[in-house]
Nucleic acid binder design. Structure first.
Length: 152
DNA sequence: GCCAACGTTGGC
DNA sequence: GCCAACGTTGGC
């Protein structure tokens, strides 16, 4: 069992989109970074906890809890020439990009980025690291507990 | 809109 | 393999 923080732009896929999706589940399309892909491929297991984070928006921060609900499988948007996420260098025979399904658990009050930074217990969170741009980052069990027990 | 930080590309 | 140029992310 591992824990993750996954960033999403709310105008693309918000916590409300997830909550109202069929089966409360969305495929996590659009990851085009090898490190983030490798986390999904090599690190994630069904049932892993996910902190759902809104980025590139007026109030960036954690807005909900979700969980990993599938193993990694090829992201279909990489094969679709009309998709923003199309990758001409990828092929169904040799898919380059993967995704996992993510299932809604609950919404939380906004835990703003500034709030995360305020807590010494979270100082080592990868998402808070200087210059971090990864859309998927691991969260330690201690960080997960602190957030879900004290900040939610 | 600005800009720091980082990843990727491609020439050599 | 190096590295400059370019593109992207994402907070502010």
């Amino acid at each position: 069992m591992h824990y993750w923080l996954m960033k999403s732009e709310p105008n693309e896929a918000s916590i409300d989109h997830l909550a109202h999706a069929p089966k409360k589940t969305l495929p996590w399309t659009g990851v085009r970074n090898y490190q983030a892909r490798n986390f999904m491929r090599d690190g994630m297991q069904i049932g892993d906890g996910v902190l759902f984070y809104h980025s590139s928006c007026p109030q960036p921060g954690i807005v909900g809890i979700a969980k990993v609900s599938s193993a990694a499988y090829p992201d279909p948007t990489q094969f679709d020439p009309t998709s923003h996420y199309y990758d001409p260098k990828s092929s169904p025979e040799k898919p380059r990009w993967l995704l996992v399904d993510v299932r809604f658990v609950k919404k939380t009050p906004l835990i703003a980025l500034a709030t995360l930074r305020d807590h010494a217990e979270l100082a080592d969170m990868q998402v808070l690291a200087r210059g971090n741009r990864l859309s998927i980052t691991p969260v330690t069990e201690a960080q997960w507990r602190f957030i879900t027990e004290h900040l939610v």
